[in-house]
Design a protein around this nucleic acid. Sequence first.
DNA 1: AGAATGAGTAGCCATATGGTTACATATTAT
DNA 2: ATAATATGTAACCATATGGCTACTCATTCT
Lengths: 102, 102
Amino acid sequence: MSERTYRAIADPTRRAILDRLRQGPANANALAGNFVTSRPAISKHLRILRESGLVIDKPSGRERIYHLNAAPLGEVFGWLGDYRTFWQSSLDQLKRNLEEET
Amino acid sequence: MSERTYRAIADPTRRAILDRLRQGPANANALAGNFVTSRPAISKHLRILRESGLVIDKPSGRERIYHLNAAPLGEVFGWLGDYRTFWQSSLDQLKRNLEEET
DNA sequence: AGAATGAGTAGCCATATGGTTACATATTAT
DNA sequence: ATAATATGTAACCATATGGCTACTCATTCT
């Protein structure tokens, strides 16, 4: 399912929602309040976040409280981790490669 | 520019290209050879990777050698890092939250 | 010179994406 | 009971995305 995770975090609004949820649960209205975007649009983003498992919603009366579930991000983090050594040495390493046969 | 990075890695083919480049530089043809997708499609992906700075191309005669440049991934890694504590404790933490008022 | 090769672009197409307004539904407040 | 509130969905729209075939351009091989 990690494919969905990559897609989900590709959108800046959705990343902002996740960032917001790091400070604690919130209902849809509260989340929408943070953006210029219309509430239905946020509702759509929340659906995508739900489907990717990045948020979990807990119905509470007429409202729905959204909780962050960061677990799926672990996979992405893992994938990126494999590149760690590359970006650490990359600047000079790359230069050497590129100038190698100049 | 990190926005472009998130978009770039959202596509599985592009991630596969990056994975491939981790093993060393390659020209466009070689990269395209790894996929069922047509060469022009790969060419487009390479353009996006170039524009996001994730690859750097070094023209060499009639071919163009692509090198991985993982640096931009560092930003994404950093963003994900802020969630680390969440996914580590998330399973039981979340359960507690959800069952809190049940 | 002429053929072949590596690679990008143009033009086209179908589907996905993100946004909007209008509407439907359920729960809570008066 | 009725009004107000919270939220999601429907229908529609414009643009982005990813893929394909045909074509162009530059370089290299014979």
